[in-house]
Amino acid sequence: MTSLPPPSARKLGLVIDLDTCVGCHACVISCKGWNTENYGAPLSDMDAYGASPEGTFLNRVHTFEVARDSAPPMVVHFPKSCLHCDNAPCVTVCPTGASYKRAEDGIVLVNESACIGCGLCAWACPYGAREMDSAAKVMKKCTLCVDRIYNDTLPEEDRTPACVRTCPAGARHFGDLGDPDSDVSQLVAARGGFDLMPEQGTAPVNKYLPPRGRDTLEIPDLASLCAPAPQAAPNAQPTGLLGWLDRALERL
């Protein structure tokens, strides 16, 4: 199982818009809620009310600051979950076959009942997308909500990952990145979507959309905008204004 299947035509994944993510952590908690109740063991929390709480999460939102030379620093919220890599090193290292990449859609999953909890796949993942659950002692990772997206007990419109459904800002998109005509592929093409750590050779399916330019407001010439300016000089006197007003009111 641990060998990777031949690349599938269908590549389901997420597209995350770093221009839009406000860092609200909604996706983090909806993921926690869904996956605590569904797919395999619940996501546990150790020392939940104590000095050092530590729980399992399949999706976490980091925040980075980007210093720029001639513009104010940017702040970018950065959600991260499994990228469902085409060339997933986490899968090939797994000794038991618990980790696998689905042949039909490329989703990378852990079969918890076969997982010995060796942790090697977490080491193999460059992105920190896998977490060992301290209570269940099995490896946990984003399932791309495989138990939602094909779930025929759910209404059609809800067959989407929990994190995507909940994202208030609409910064998360789900779809088939193997199909160049899909909405997500088009979005990636239009907005210059990119891979995380391409040098790691993992060929992630998930893509990130870059933040748009920040602090670019040009200084238009206000004077050119105002046809009958009341006064060109900054110290406009009401008298100047009165003349303008008269003319302007006349035109109304």
Binding site: F64, E65, A67, V76
Partner: peptide
């Protein structure tokens, strides 16, 4: 993927709790 924009520095880890 933000390297082209400037110097990237972690501002806040995702959780104040451990992992």
């Amino acid at each position: 993927g933000l390297g082209a924009l400037g110097r990237v520095r972690l501002l806040e880890p995702p959780h104040s709790g451990r992992n």
